[in-house]
């Protein structure tokens, strides 16, 4: 159930492939994400989900295949260039600036977005402080704005990452296991927030997740990756009923809520 009308999808991927020393991490993957859509990419550990993300955001060059943002090919561009085209991302293993406060972390993203990096005199803390707080408020991190990012609890780091990813007013948001390690209540909260932002700002969201409550709760559509290949695509009900997906990934659902 794709939303967003007839124009080019925000993200389209065709025949993507990447191998690490003979092991095909991603093989012939094709899909598209529309404006305002939340697409979940799930699959066993080592299926190639993070590798896909790293290709999409420019950390890794694909061996084959093409990536299109709003119809424009961005295959093999650097992560800087891709960010400039309106792609925000969060990392499975969180990456923030540990020697800066939470607010300063967001300020850095804003400074980059507004191209104020090459400024040598006025202190950085005067740049975009209010805008940074405005991004921290919806993710619930405003009261921790003065804390060092290096000493945040895991779940809070994930929220900080979301705020950073939103700083360039992205059209596409890539979230690699956004709620892993978060408390159950906050998972729901974070994903509800993402859902809201996605529809309000017409952001396309591609995310991976091992929490089936989250996946089936918020995804509009689900893709299943196994050993680098797409083995299934469809709605939550379709995926849950797919015997192959159950065999390689879902199991009986006794410990994951996937039943």
């Amino acid at each position: 159930m794709t939303r967003g009308g007839p124009e080019a999808p925000v993200l389209a991927v065709a025949g993507l492939a990447k191998a690490f020393g003979g092991v095909a991490a991603v093989a012939e993957v094709s899909f598209a994400v529309a404006r305002g859509e939340m697409l979940a990419l799930i699959g066993p550990n080592g299926a190639g989900k993070s590798t896909c993300f790293n290709i999409l955001s420019g950390q890794i060059r694909p061996d084959r295949g093409a990536v299109y943002l709003n119809g424009e090919s961005v295959t093999g561009l650097s992560s800087r260039a891709i960010w400039r085209r309106g792609v925000g991302r969060t990392f499975q293993i969180t990456a923030t600036f540990a020697s800066m406060t939470v607010r300063e972390n967001v300020q850095m993203a804003l400074i980059s977005h507004h191209r104020r990096v090459w400024r040598f005199l006025r202190p950085a803390r005067h740049y975009f402080a209010a805008e940074a707080d405005a991004l921290l408020a919806p993710v619930g991190m405003q009261d921790q704005a003065e804390r060092a990012a290096g000493e945040l609890a895991y779940g809070d780091l994930k929220r900080l990452e979301l705020a950073i990813a939103l700083a360039n007013a992205p059209r596409l948001l890539l979230m690699d296991e956004p709620t892993a390690g978060m408390a159950p209540a906050e998972r729901g909260g974070l994903m509800a927030l993402t859902r809201r932002l996605a529809s309000e700002r017409a952001i396309a969201v591609l995310f991976t997740e091992h929490d089936m409550d989250v996946v089936f709760g918020v995804a509009d559509r689900i893709l299943v990756l196994d050993r680098g290949r797409l083995i299934a695509a469809g709605s939550g009900a379709e995926i849950r009923a797919n015997p192959e997906v159950r065999a390689v990934y879902l199991g009986s659902g006794a410990t994951s809520g996937g039943h």
Partner: peptide, 8 residues
């Protein structure tokens, strides 16, 4: 990684 991911 983070720096490059936000275009720095």
């Amino acid at each position: 990684v983070r720096a490059e991911a936000i275009g720095l």
